[in-house]
């Protein structure tokens, strides 16, 4: 396979490619759209935000001498009269992964300029995200009903409630923002803002392009990624 080229520049593979990309002029990330590079760097920064939250949680949970509630009991749900541990969480994970899959396909069809498929898949992702937020709201209300508050909880260490509401809340905020944007972009896809060279935005110079769907996709997968970590550290620990 011959290496692809950007006019006058040979794209070498692997680490040699890294060296030559870094040493080249104009762009370091060859062929990466500005917006996509920006989203990646933003996600890197956001990773640090979530890492700091989770590190704080680790420190808080690890250093409290009071007993930490057992998540598999706290988050159990009655199904057909039997308490199933972590049932709701499992469903939430299922929903989020489903939406991540539809998003990945939306990106694929976006690049193939398949307007219909792309639009429907983005819409499906948005609905998946909305379901997730709804389930989280249910989970919150259930816990609050059981007496768990950010400042106290009947099952043990008070920090349990604090970290739970803060971290899932912050993640939920990310999901909600994502859902809003998913709906907007679903509209934009259907309205054809990315067709025929793109539509120029208001008060700006940006022109629409299907790459925006990939950028949105990056954000959405990141939200899913964070959930993987929250699931492991919050519900399974």
């Amino acid at each position: 396979m011959s290496d692809p080229k950007i006019d006058g520049f040979e794209l070498k593979p692997g680490f040699r490619g890294m060296a030559s990309d870094t040493g080249s002029d104009q762009t370091m990330f060859k062929g990466v759209h500005w917006g996509k590079a920006m989203m990646w760097i933003f996600l890197l920064s956001d990773t640090f935000v979530f890492s700091c939250f989770l590190i704080a949680y680790m420190k808080g949970r690890g250093s409290t001498p009071v007993e930490w509630p057992n998540p598999s009991e706290v988050f159990a749900l009655e199904a057909f009269g039997v308490p199933v541990p972590l049932l709701l969480i499992a469903l939430m994970t299922f929903v989020l992964i489903t939406s991540s899959g539809t998003m990945a396909l939306a990106v694929k069809y976006g690049y193939e300029k398949n307007r219909k498929m792309c639009g429907w898949l983005v819409l499906a992702t948005a609905i998946g995200g909305l379901t997730f937020v709804g389930m989280q709201a249910y989970e919150w209300s259930k816990l609050i009903h059981e007496g768990v508050r950010p400042w106290e909880n009947p099952f043990g260490a008070a920090q349990f409630g604090s970290f739970f509401f803060m971290i899932t809340g912050f993640h939920g905020t990310h999901v909600s923002i994502g859902v809003i944007f998913l709906f907007i972009y679903a509209y934009k896809v259907f309205a054809g803002h990315y067709e025929n060279g793109g539509k120029r935005g208001w008060f700006t110079t940006m022109k629409g392009d299907y790459v925006e769907i990939e950028i949105l996709g990056l954000y959405w997968h990141f939200v899913d990624l964070v959930w993987v970590f929250i699931f492991a550290f919050f519900y399974l620990w």
Partner: peptide, 24 residues
């Protein structure tokens, strides 16, 4: 293990990192 496996799959394939150039 499962956490990193899932995170790795999402990053590598859904976020296309597997196909990105090493510089990124």
């Amino acid at each position: 293990f499962f956490m990193f496996a899932k995170a790795g799959l999402i990053m590598a394939f859904f976020m296309h990192l597997f196909w990105e150039r090493y510089a990124l």
